[in-house]
C-alpha cells in the first residue's frame, strides 16, 4: 500500500484535536471508512468500495508523509506546515481549529517594545517559526526547543519568553503570562502531495471543490 497504487487515494489524518473535525468534514464529502477512528488498532484503514486508504499520524509527521507521497492528501494545522516547511500543495483553508501563534512573557517581565526583549531566551515547540518571526523584526534571540508544556519554561527560569500556539489564552492567564505579539492566526489546511495532485488531479480536485462548496455554505448560513 503506497501512493504508487493509482486506483487508491491515501488520506493522512492527524492524531489529536484536529482528528475529529477533519474526519467529520471529509465524511461530508464522501471520504470516510467504516472503522475510521483515532483509536483504531489498524494502521491503515481501507474503504474498498470508495477506493480509499486512511492513515493516522502524529501531527508533526503528517507533512512528511505527504511530501514523500506516502499519502496523497491530508489535513493539518498551518502551524505544522510553517514549522516543517515541506514541499507540498496547500489547497484549502478549512477554517476550523482556529488558534494563533503568539509571543508571551511573564507579566513581571513586560517591556515596552518587542525589540526590548532582544537576546533573551525563547522557549518554543516551533523554533523555525519563532526564529523567522524575530528575524523578520530584526531581533536576535536565543531559541530553546521544547516538546510541550512551554508555559513551564519561564516559571522555572529556563527561558524569559515563549512562542506558542494558543486557542483561548486561558492557559496563559492561569500562568500569569501576557501575550505581547501575535505572529499569525492558524487554521486547518487541506494539503496534497505535489505529484499526486498531478497524477490524481481529477479526484483530488473534485474533493477540494466539494470541500470548498461545503465551506462557502457554512459562511452564507
Amino acid at each position: 500500500m503506497t501512493s504508487s497504487d493509482m486506483d487508491y487515494l491515501t488520506i493522512a489524518l492527524p492524531k489529536g484535536k484536529l482528528f475529529a473535525p477533519s474526519a467529520e468534514m471529509l465524511a461530508k464529502v464522501g471520504c470516510t471508512a467504516e472503522d475510521l477512528s483515532e483509536n483504531s488498532r489498524k494502521l491503515v484503514i481501507t474503504n474498498e468500495k470508495e477506493k480509499l486508504h486512511f492513515i493516522i499520524t502524529k501531527t508533526a509527521d503528517l507533512p512528511t508523509y505527504i511530501e514523500y507521497g506516502a499519502a496523497d492528501i491530508g489535513i493539518i494545522g498551518k502551524d505544522v506546515l510553517l514549522e516543517e516547511e515541506k514541499d507540498l500543495y496547500e489547497l484549502l483553508d478549512l477554517r476550523f481549529g482556529l488558534c494563533r501563534m503568539m509571543v508571551a512573557v511573564p507579566e513581571a517581565l513586560k517591556r515596552e517594545k518587542l525589540s526590548d526583549y532582544a537576546h533573551m531566551r525563547v522557549a518554543t515547540k516551533y523554533p523555525r517559526i519563532a526564529e523567522s518571526y524575530f528575524h523578520s523584526m530584526g531581533i536576535q534571540m536565543e531559541f530553546i526547543k521544547l516538546n510541550g508544556s512551554i508555559e513551564l519554561a519561564p516559571m522555572v527560569g529556563l527561558a524569559e519568553i515563549i512562542v506558542d500556539l494558543v486557542e483561548t489564552g486561558r492557559t496563559l492567564k492561569a500562568n500569569n503570562l501576557l501575550e505581547v505579539a501575535t505572529i499569525q492566526p492558524v487554521t486547518a489546511r487541506f494539503i496534497a502531495n505535489r505529484v499526486s495532485f498531478k497524477l490524481k488531479f481529477d479526484r483530488i480536485n473534485r474533493i477540494t471543490e466539494e470541500l470548498r462548496t461545503l465551506l462557502e455554505g457554512v459562511v452564507t448560513l
Binding site: E67, G69, A70, V195, K198
Partner: peptide
Amino acid sequence: GYTPGLGFP
C-alpha cells in the same frame, strides 16, 4: 514528468 510512487517530479 511524474511517475506513481515517487512524491516528486
